[in-house]
Design a binder for these strands. Structure first.
Lengths: 145, 145
DNA sequence: TGATATGATTAGCTTTGCTAACTAACTATG
DNA sequence: CATAGTTAGTTAGCAAAGCTAATCATATCA
């Protein structure tokens, strides 16, 4: 059926635009709440996924190693993560969140997303369910297979 | 109810992460298909929404005037849009897509989103509907009220 | 007419992405 | 065991896209 391709393209375009605008909107609250999106996102992976090597973290965040290397460096300078060399394989750098990092995530992330979360909270049950399911589907589609 | 806030925050976080990763993924196809996301998005507004003032365009894209000014300048240099001074109010700059711009959008946008669109196309009916509805809800939430 | 408001641009900064090139460390092979 | 290749991470340097502050030209209003 031809309509299926067209429908997929339409949804893809809408989702693309929606994602662009959503992130632009969320970025505005960065100044208030602390860490910019990418750093917060990486920290979140470390807090919820546990310690990781740099490469694992880069992969999880779909970013190249040098990009992640810099993000981690900056997070370390701020005291939110800690780097340790692996004993067995001295090439590996294990990165973990500090308690300061965990604390920031608890407090800061909620604040950052506050407006968006409140908007979602004010939707009706059905719409909330749709967004929840959509987030899961997108996460699945985005994850490296 | 307390669960409602918590649920909203959870969905907000997931959607946030999903959006970050989605855009990172789509960015990779830029090199192949031509225009980076923000330029493509602005061009799209011009093609589907008709000629606009710089300020209107900036508002539609949720971006500040200087940012849009530069994007438009670059699009103009590439021949995808045209700027004309308004006759009545000479402060206004009317921006419109050229036929070259329209052509690029037809060909290029589809190509850029191809993989994503194909992924969506391969979902089952239910999941496709969820994404479609979610895109609409997000668009509504993101639009300046 | 002069003051104020508005639209757009310019200048300059920041963040975040990339590739290319490098170093250090590990692995495998002759 | 030596050395060739591979892998992990970093450094250097670039580009895109966002911002604010300042400026310029034009409109509007008292």
């Amino acid at each position: 059926m031809a309509g299926r391709e067209a429908e997929g393209r339409l949804i893809a375009e809408r989702m693309h635009s929606a994602a662009i605008r959503l992130l632009r909107r969320l970025r505005k609250s960065d100044a208030a709440s602390g860490l910019p999106g990418p750093k917060l996102s990486a920290l979140s992976v470390l807090v919820f996924g546990g310690p990781q090597t740099l490469k694992e973290l880069a992969l999880a965040e779909q970013v190249r190693a040098p990009t992640m290397s810099r993000l981690v460096m900056e997070l370390e300078a701020l005291g939110f993560v800690m780097k340790t060399r692996d004993r067995q394989d001295k090439r590996l750098v294990r990165i973990q969140a500090t308690s300061k990092g965990r604390a920031l995530l608890e407090a800061g992330k909620a604040r950052r997303l506050e407006t968006f979360a409140r908007q979602i909270g004010s939707l009706d049950v059905h719409e909330r369910r749709v967004l929840g399911m959509a987030a899961k589907i997108l996460t699945r589609l985005n994850s490296p297979e």
